[in-house]
């Protein structure tokens, strides 16, 4: 075991860390922004509204992220009508393809997490809002969504961690994230143990940070339920 090669190449890992953090945070934000309205619409009883969103979440939750990424990265490169179109500027970049795949994937999961939380809203809360004369939109904004977010937070915390781990797949489409850095070190020094153990430590630290942040958020969002 020789960890001096890791110390000498720590900058490779920090470059990778930067890419991982950007990929994960951007796709989580984009995914969440789209997931909120989609989740509300998904609870609709109208199949024309509900159906397509169901199909979207079913596809992205029902197929592996790696397959989705290959479809988007190598799939788009196969068709001339995409390559000749304006969109190629984006799909040409591995970075964009990864962001695109990750955003869609996390959006699908987040939609279902929030939908579940919305459907579990206690009836009393909704009825009270109705009795107070709130319109549907106001009800969603003031009562249903805040209450749903509170309930969704623990599972959303998991989704953040899954997304972090899923982002390691970016390394297969040439992006040097933390895993990509480990692969690079491994292929240069043929030392898989040192290379991937270091990557594992990086992921553990980020995961620890995520768990801590989500815990804090849970605490501050549940103020009205605390007895102290």
């Amino acid at each position: 075991m020789d960890f001096s090669i890791i110390l000498e190449n720590l900058n490779v890992y920090f470059d990778g860390l930067q890419n991982t953090l950007i990929l994960v945070s951007v796709s989580l934000i984009v995914g969440l922004i789209f997931a909120i309205p989609l989740a509300v619409l998904r609870t609709s009883k109208n199949i024309v509204i509900n159906g397509p969103i169901w199909a979207f979440t079913y596809f992205f939750r029902g197929t592996p992220l790696l397959v989705q990424m290959f479809l988007i990265y190598y799939g788009t490169g196969q068709f001339d009508f995409i390559k000749d179109s304006f969109f190629w500027i984006f799909f040409k970049e591995a970075y964009f393809c990864a962001l695109f795949a990750f955003s869609l994937n996390t959006c699908a999961y987040t939609t279902e997490i929030i939908r579940g939380a919305i459907e579990n809203t206690p009836h009393g809360e909704v009825e009270a809002a109705k009795a107070a004369g709130m319109s549907m939109l106001l009800r969603i904004r003031r009562i249903i969504l805040p209450s749903a977010f509170r309930r969704a937070l623990p599972s959303y915390g998991n989704e953040i961690i899954f997304m972090l781990h899923g982002s390691s797949l970016a390394s297969v489409i040439t992006i040097i994230d933390i895993t990509g850095a480990a692969r690079k070190i491994n292929s240069t020094y043929y030392s898989p143990y040192e290379a991937f153990l270091t990557a594992a430590v990086f992921y553990l630290c980020i995961t620890f940070l995520i768990i801590w942040l989500v815990k804090r958020l849970e605490y501050s969002w549940s103020g009205h339920l605390r007895r102290d």
């Binding site: 190598y74 788009t76 490169g77 196969q78 390559k83 190629w88 040409k92 591995a94 297969v172 040439t174 690079k184 292929s187």
Partner: peptide, 18 residues
């Protein structure tokens, strides 16, 4: 420099223009 897992993937991305 872009590094790929297999030579076939290099050919694929050469073809796609990346």
């Amino acid at each position: 420099i872009k590094s790929y897992g297999t030579q076939d993937e290099v050919y694929l991305d050469m073809q796609s223009g990346r």
